[in-house]
Structure formats: C-alpha cells, structure tokens
C-alpha cells in the first residue's frame, strides 16, 4: 500500500504507523456528567467496510501525523492530509 504523505510524497505503508479512527473528537468537559462522552472517545470505535479516516503517523519519514482516508475493503487510499492542517482552528 502506498500513502501520499503531503510532506514527503508517496511512500510505502511500512514507513507509517496506524493509530486508528480520526473522526473521534476529544471531549472538553471535565464534569462527571461527561463520562459517557469520554468512554466513547477512548473506547468506542466503528469498524466500517468502506471508507475510513484514520490517524497515521509518517513515523519512518517526516514524523507528521496524518489523517488518511482509505477503503478498508479495497485498500484504496483516497487522501492523506496533515492532522495539524485539518484540525487547526482558523
């Protein structure tokens, strides 16, 4: 599998480390009532067949964290965007 790192160009998957679901959002509340949200954030993951956005680090290259969208059924990689660019608030 090849992943098009936005910083380094296309590189083979061995240079990357997968973390998992990039759609989960870390809760901001520290109130006990938000515990369910935290549980979901830490533990609850979908396992879709089809497109899936994951946090992937280019650990064997520029070390940037990316959000890579790929099809789990076909292994086709649709996009790889720097997590920083994607998450940065305007």
């Amino acid at each position: 599998m090849l992943i098009p790192c936005p910083h380094c160009g296309t590189r083979p998957v061995e240079e990357f480390t997968f973390l998992g679901d990039a759609t989960v959002i870390r809760p901001t509340s520290l109130e006990p009532s938000s515990m369910d949200d935290w549980m979901d954030y830490v533990y609850l993951r979908d396992n879709p067949r089809g497109n899936y956005a994951e946090y992937v680090q280019h650990s064997g290259g520029c070390r940037a964290w990316l959000v890579v969208t790929r099809n789990t059924g076909t292994h086709e990689v649709h996009s790889a965007v720097a997590a920083k660019a994607m998450k940065a608030k305007p």
């Binding site: 380094c8 061995e14 240079e15 290259g61």
Partner: peptide
C-alpha cells in the same frame, strides 16, 4: 528526504 534504510531513520 526523510526515510528509512535498514530499519534506521
């Protein structure tokens, strides 16, 4: 470029 060779960055 940053890459790996022989398991070394």
């Amino acid at each position: 470029a940053l890459t790996q060779m022989a398991h070394v960055g």
